[in-house]
Each structure stands twice: as structure tokens, then as C-alpha cells.
């Protein structure tokens, strides 16, 4: 009897580890882009918990919170009886504990535009919503191709101001860097092998960008415009973007890129 139970258990575990999970999982979405993607592929009913900044769509705000993207409360997480946790980084404190307690851990950390699409497909597989995921991916791919064909300029040098005080930008191997590249822009600090390097104003002047992109959060954009006009000349182009669209490697990325391209086309570049 005991033997049979154990054997059956073994078989269940075996299948679970070999085949993708099925619909009816109880999912922890431990990053904002994961949450958005799951909603977009119709897996929202399976989400049992989320973390701070999981704020899109509006309905996601009602999900129980179990921490932030960089630290989770294991007790609160386990109380939700999850079967799968989709995390940004498997080294996040608490994640290994979840794994020990039998929760399947799925990492999701796309750093290029192409990886965003692959990530949607992967999440579709994990949650058993492959069809919806594939439909979404082909839609996104079409929009991306259309967008790319619209690009009429080449390698415009751009300074991306992640933060104003201290002045931070995006380095190589970052998502922002790839987004800029795909839209035909050249990140002037793209050669720096740092994620968010601190930069001196002088270095920006020396890099001679033609365009400054400012995420529209936590800063007085009109002051930044005056600041950059002073240092980069009156003819510098400055545009603002919604960081939630451009910084999150989720399905709304194409909205962000389209908005960026529309703005760029309005400029005389």
C-alpha cells in the first residue's frame, strides 16, 4: 500500500518535471512585467499573489502582495498555496525557500526585445495558455516588424537619463539599451559594461548626443529641459517616455516603442 502510494507520487512528480505545467496552477507573479504578461495571455485567474509595482491592468492592484521584486515574505507566499513562482532572479531572498517547500520556480528576466517575445511564449507554456501566448507573440512580432520598417533614420546618438540626481544612464547589456538599438538609436554610453553607471555632465557633453530621453517620473521635466539646453545647445531634442512602458520587458513594450517612434518622427532629425 505504502509502496504503491510512493510509486504513484513518484510518477506524478516525474510527469510534473518533464511536461509543462497545466492550467489550474496557482501562480505567484513576482515582477511587474510577469503580472502584465499573464493578464495579456489570459492566465490572470491563476495568479494568487503579486509584488509591489504590479499595477497593470487595474485589476492587478487587487491581488494579494507578498513583498517586492527584490525581497519576498515566504510565509505570506506559502499561505497562498502556490504551485509556481515566476521570479526575476532565482537568487532573490526567499525564493530558494519556496523551492524547498515544493514550489516550482520559473525565472523570467528578458533583457532584449526578442527575449520579451520568447518570454511570453515561455510563460504561455508554463501556465498552459500556449495558444493565447502564440497569438499575442505573432501580433507583437507584426507590430515590431511594421515599426522597424517605418524607421527612416540611422544610429541617432541618444543619451538616456535614467536618473537626474545623481545622473544615471543605461549601460551595455541592459533592456533599455536594446530598446534604443531596436528603434534605430545609438546609446552614447552603450559601451559601458555597467547596468546603471553614474555619469558626469561633462561626459554627456563629450559624447555629443543629438537627443535626450527622459523617463517621466520623479523629476521636473521642464527643469531638465532647461538644464540640457544649457549644456547640449539649444538645438538638442528632448523627449519624455513613460517608464512603465519602456522599462518593463512586458507586452506593453510595443506601445512604448510606438510612442517613442511617433515622437521621433515628429522631430526634424
Amino acid at each position: 500500500m505504502g509502496y504503491c502510494v510512493r510509486k504513484a507520487w513518484f510518477i506524478v512528480c516525474f510527469f510534473c518535471s518533464v511536461f509543462p505545467a497545466f492550467a489550474g496552477e496557482r501562480i505567484l507573479a513576482l515582477a511587474p512585467h510577469v503580472c502584465e504578461t499573464l493578464y495579456a495571455i489570459g492566465a490572470e485567474k491563476d495568479i494568487v499573489g503579486a509584488v509591489s509595482y504590479c499595477d497593470y491592468p487595474k485589476a492587478a492592484l487587487k491581488l494579494p502582495r507578498i513583498g517586492a521584486y527584490n525581497r519576498i515574505n515566504v510565509e505570506a507566499a506559502i499561505a497562498l498555496r502556490p504551485t509556481v513562482a515566476i521570479v526575476l532572479n532565482i537568487k532573490t531572498p526567499g525564493v530558494s525557500k519556496l523551492r524547498q517547500l515544493g514550489v516550482k520556480i520559473v525565472p523570467s528576466y528578458p533583457v532584449t526585445v526578442d527575449e520579451v517575445l520568447q518570454n511570453v511564449q515561455m510563460l504561455g507554456r508554463v501556465t498552459g495558455h500556449e495558444q493565447q501566448a502564440n497569438a499575442l507573440v505573432s501580433d507583437l512580432q507584426k507590430r515590431l516588424d511594421k515599426l522597424t520598417s517605418r524607421i527612416s533614420y540611422k544610429e541617432i546618438p541618444v543619451f538616456y537619463e535614467i536618473w537626474s540626481d545623481p545622473l544615471l544612464t543605461a549601460g551595455n547589456n541592459t533592456f533599455i539599451h536594446d530598446v534604443l538599438r531596436r528603434i534605430g538609436l545609438r546609446n552614447v554610453f552603450g559601451s559601458l559594461a555597467l547596468e546603471a553607471p553614474r555619469i558626469n555632465v561633462e561626459s554627456v557633453i563629450a559624447a555629443q548626443p543629438k537627443l535626450v530621453i527622459i523617463p517621466s517620473e520623479n523629476r521636473d521635466v521642464s527643469k531638465r529641459v532647461i538644464f540640457w539646453k544649457k549644456w547640449l545647445g539649444e538645438d538638442i531634442h528632448i523627449i519624455t517616455v513613460n517608464p512603465d512602458l519602456v522599462h518593463r520587458p512586458g507586452p506593453r513594450l510595443l506601445d512604448g516603442m510606438t510612442d517613442l517612434l511617433n515622437q521621433l518622427e515628429g522631430l526634424k532629425l
Partner: peptide, 11 residues
């Protein structure tokens, strides 16, 4: 601090 890993800076 501001020149050693230029164009990035150290605190």
C-alpha cells in the same frame, strides 16, 4: 573618483 572609470564615476 570622477576620472578613474570615465565616463562613469565612482562615489
Amino acid at each position: 573618483a570622477r576620472t578613474i572609470i570615465s565616463p562613469a564615476e565612482l562615489p
